[in-house]
Simulated assay, not measured.
Amino acid sequence: MDEIIPHRGYKKYGAELITNMHHYRVEIFNQVVDLTIQEMDNRFSKASTELLGCISCLDPRNYFSRFNDDQVIRLATLYHEYFSANECSRLPLQLSNFIANVRCDPQFAALCNLGDVATKMVKSGKHLVFLLVYRIIELALVLPVATASVERAFSAMKTIKTDLRNRMGDEWMNDSLIVYIEKGLFSTIDNEKILQRFQSMRTRRIQLPPL
């Protein structure tokens, strides 16, 4: 890797000399990383990136080595409807007590994800002692699922409510979205049961033929 080579893209003679290490690190690796960061910035908004950063600081690995109380407090302020002003003022002290407690507790030493932390807190009764911290952990566990569900709903809406269906009502669109989003679950339901359910909803002129 320390071999001296001409700078790629220049004439062979009179070109700047660089090492193979410089070529692969600066001209390939760094460029790939820059492109990846640009794609991430284009895909996720600034608010989403900040939210992910706040959640990631709750990682329990290595005795909560990434814990940052400022980011956890920021997460609480972002969702102020779940935390009153009085609770936000009490949160810093409860966070410092919590992190000091779990770092000394061997039960939390081998945990590797936030779901295990929540389970262990309930089993040990710490969810009652550190009530605000447990509420934040619950919020952090729910947010990725809720965000993904919202994105799936908006993506499905583009498929369901097309230009030809732009006058469909909210109730009908809601039902259609549920069926489209949860199509894996609905595919397990027998079509005959659906026909019977539809037939029994009200009196109809004709009977639907069995499948």
Results as ranks from 00 to 15, higher is better:
A110R: 05
V145H: 14
Y82K: 06
P106Q: 04
F130T: 03
R103G: 08
C88I: 15
L211W: 02
G115Q: 12
E192K: 15
R90D: 12
P210L: 08
V102S: 00
L58Y: 08
T49L: 12
L75T: 07
I181S: 06
V142R: 04
E3K: 11
L185V: 08
E138G: 10
M40H: 13
V142N: 03
G53M: 11
N62M: 10
N101K: 14
N86M: 08
Y134H: 14
D175L: 04
V26S: 15
R204D: 05
F130W: 05
P106W: 03
R152L: 04
A118P: 03
L95H: 05
S176Y: 04
A156V: 09
K183Q: 13
E151T: 10
S155I: 15
R66Q: 13
E3P: 09
L111R: 01
A47P: 02
A153M: 09
S176N: 14
F186H: 10
V26M: 15
Y13Q: 08
Q38H: 09
S45H: 06
K193Y: 14
Y82M: 08
V33L: 11
C112T: 15
V142S: 05
A100K: 00
Y79F: 14
R103T: 09
V33Y: 06
L93V: 10
S45C: 05
L164T: 15
K161G: 00
E192H: 12
H23N: 14
M168P: 01
R66N: 03
H7Q: 15
N97Q: 09
Y134R: 11
G169R: 07
L128A: 10
T147C: 02
N174S: 10
E3G: 09
R103I: 07
E192Y: 06
R167K: 13
H127C: 11
I18P: 02
R103P: 02
L114H: 01
D2G: 12
M121F: 02
H7V: 15
L143N: 00
P144G: 03
R61V: 14
L114M: 13
N20M: 14
L128C: 07
D190Y: 07
A85Q: 12
V72K: 01
K161N: 03
S56W: 11
G125N: 10
Y79L: 01
R74E: 11
R66C: 08
Q107K: 13
I55N: 04
L141T: 08
L95A: 06
F44N: 01
N97W: 07
S176R: 01
A85M: 10
L111Q: 00
S149W: 03
F130V: 05
P60S: 03
Q196K: 00
R43M: 08
K183C: 13
N97A: 03
I5P: 05
L95E: 06
T119P: 00
L128P: 01
T203D: 02
S65H: 12
T119S: 08
S124D: 13
S48I: 14
R202S: 15
L132G: 01
D105R: 06
L164E: 14
R103N: 05
K126V: 00
I18W: 04
G14L: 13
Y24M: 11
N113F: 11
A85D: 11
V129S: 03
N101I: 01
Q207K: 05
L131E: 10
Y82V: 01
F83H: 04
E27Q: 06
Y134F: 12
I99Q: 04
T159F: 05
I194L: 06
Q94W: 02
T36K: 01
M201Y: 14
